[in-house]
Structure formats: structure tokens, C-alpha cells
Simulated assay, not measured.
Amino acid sequence: MNKLTNVLIIEQEPLISYSIEEALRNISVQNDLFCNMTSVYDYKSALNELNSSKHYNLVFLSIDSDNSFNKQSSLTNQVFSLLEKSLKNIQLMILIHECDNFLIHNLFKTLNPESILLKRDMKFKDLTTAIDRVIQNIPFYSTTILKHLRIRMSCNISLDKSDQLILYYLSKGVRMKDMSKMVFLSHSAIESRKRKLKQLFNAERQQDSFLFEKAREHGFI
């Protein structure tokens, strides 16, 4: 290959960041590929790098599902926005802490990354394989991520964005009265949608936990 590749690693955990760097070094030696690596440990530093004059070819983005779709997390939203605008020019590999179906679905719809890796599934060999394939323009996803995709593709239930958000926030313990500002609907509209969701998932007269279980089985949360 023998081409310059600027790599940005946005990872809060130093050990994982180091593993990514080591995997890149191994691949660089095997493929005669020069990698100029920059590692940052928070989204503020990531924003500075993404706004710099340096053109990044490959970006690793670590995501915490508790903050990723929080409207108050402006730094997260800014990083997502910059990456969305740059998708034609970069290859994006995302690392997530847990298998959050709502997060995974939204990542595919918004960022459509070349790779999503679940950290608990990830061994060094898997990481190296994933990077090597992405550099060759071959997508790579963790086994658990592929399982999620199969479940969603086989599901014949269709939900709009508001319904998905309501399900997600309810499952996270957000109170109904606090949800209006998050989904931009009135309290009565949210209550109505919740009743329809219970009907859709055959969860009428059941506790909310039963609704969440059914939604999880179909890959929505």
C-alpha cells in the first residue's frame, strides 16, 4: 500500500487505545502502510482534532450508550455531526460498551460505520482482523452486532422515530413527565403512543417490563 493514513482514535480507556495502536502497527508492517496515529481520551479533544486542518482517513470512535443520544450531551452531538459531514472521506470504526439495540440501529441509520465492535466480544485478533478488513473496504461487525441485524431484518413490526425514542427512554427509567422535552410530544400524546405500543407488542394489561422484554426480543431496545 505504502500510503499515508491519518488515524484518529477517540477512546476513553487507555488500554483499549493502546491495543488499537498496536494492531495498527502490526498491520502497517505487514502491508507497508504508514499510519500517523493520534489518540484522544475525551470528546472535547476529539472535536479539536476533527476541526483541525489534518485530514483523517480512519477514525475509531468509542461510544457510551448512556450519553450517545442524550440531548444535553452537546459534545457528543457535535462529534456525531462532524463525522456525518465527513463520511465520504473517512472510514469509521465504532466501539461500544454494551449491546444496546436502540443505539446500534441509530448508528447504522446516522453514521453507517464500516465496523461496529462490541468491546466485550473483542479480542486482539478480532480487532486486528476488523482493522485489516476495513482498510481493504470490507465491513466488519462483531458477532453480537450481526445477530442484532438479523433480528431487526426478520421483524415485521415498524416503528417511527418517536415510538422508538419513547420505548428507549421508558426502558431507561425516564419518567413520562420528563419525556416531553426529549421526544417533542405532549404528555397525552406520549401516553397514547405508549398504549398503542402495548397493543402492537401484545402487552396490554401487562407491566411495562413485559413491554420492554418484547421490544428487546424484536431488537428495538
Score class of each variant (00 low, 15 high):
Ser45Leu: 03
Arg133Asp: 13
Glu84Asp: 11
Asp64Gln: 13
Tyr41Cys: 07
Ser186His: 09
Thr38Ser: 15
Gln72Pro: 15
Gln30Asn: 09
Glu21Arg: 12
Lys119Asn: 02
Asn70Gln: 08
Lys85Leu: 12
Gln199Asp: 15
Leu107Lys: 04
Ala215Leu: 02
Met153Ala: 13
Glu49Lys: 14
Asn51Gln: 06
Ile135Gly: 12
Lys198Met: 04
Phe124Val: 12
Asn89Trp: 01
Ile94Ser: 01
Asn70Ala: 02
Leu95Arg: 09
Thr38Leu: 08
Gly219Tyr: 04
Arg175Val: 15
Ser171Gln: 08
Asn89Cys: 04
Cys99Thr: 05
Asn6Val: 04
Ser142Asn: 05
Ile90Tyr: 06
Met93Thr: 06
Ser186Gly: 06
Met1Asp: 08
Ile96Thr: 05
Asn202Ile: 00
Lys71Pro: 08
Phe140Val: 11
Phe60Gly: 03
His187Pro: 10
Leu83Phe: 02
Glu217Asp: 01
Ser28Trp: 00
Ser17Ile: 11
Tyr43Trp: 04
Glu11Met: 00
Lys125Met: 01
Leu61Ser: 00
Lys3Ala: 11
Met37Cys: 02
Thr110Val: 04
Asp42Gly: 13
Ile104Tyr: 07
Glu84Arg: 15
Ile116Ala: 02
Ile157Val: 12
Ile27Ser: 09
Asp100Leu: 03
Phe212Cys: 05
Ser17Glu: 04
Lys71Thr: 15
Leu211Thr: 13
Asp208Phe: 00
Asn89Arg: 08
Ser171Arg: 03
Asp100Glu: 03
Arg175Asp: 15
Ile90Trp: 07
Asp32Glu: 07
Ile131Cys: 03
Ala189Tyr: 02
Ser17Asp: 01
Asn51His: 04
Ala23Thr: 05
Lys177Thr: 03
Asp160Trp: 15
Ser74Leu: 13
Asn101Gly: 12
Ile94Ala: 03
Ala130Arg: 11
Gln164Val: 04
Ile138Val: 15
Lys85Trp: 10
Asp178Pro: 08
Asn6Ser: 06
Asn2Asp: 10
Ser142Val: 02
Glu98Phe: 08
Ile104Trp: 03
Leu24Thr: 14
Val40Ala: 11
Val59Glu: 08
Asn137Met: 06
Arg150His: 10
Asn26Phe: 05
Leu211Glu: 13
Glu49Ala: 14
Val59Pro: 12
Val183Met: 01
Leu95Gln: 03
Phe69Pro: 01
Asn26Cys: 06
Tyr56Asn: 10
Leu15Thr: 15
Ser81Asp: 04
Arg133Ser: 14
Ser73Arg: 05
Ile131Met: 11
Lys172Ile: 11
Ser19Trp: 07
Leu211Val: 10
Ser73Gln: 10
Asn51Thr: 06
Leu95Trp: 00
Asn202Phe: 07
Leu211Ile: 06
Glu21Thr: 14
Lys85Pro: 08
Ala215Tyr: 00
Leu50Thr: 05
Leu58His: 11
Ser154Cys: 02
Ile27Lys: 10
Val7Thr: 00
Asp132Cys: 14
Ile94Cys: 04
Phe108Trp: 14
Thr144Glu: 09
Gln12Ser: 07
Ser86Met: 09
Ser52Phe: 05
Ala130Tyr: 06
Gln207Arg: 09
Ser17Arg: 10
Ser186Glu: 12
Phe140Pro: 12
Phe60Glu: 05
Ile96Asn: 02
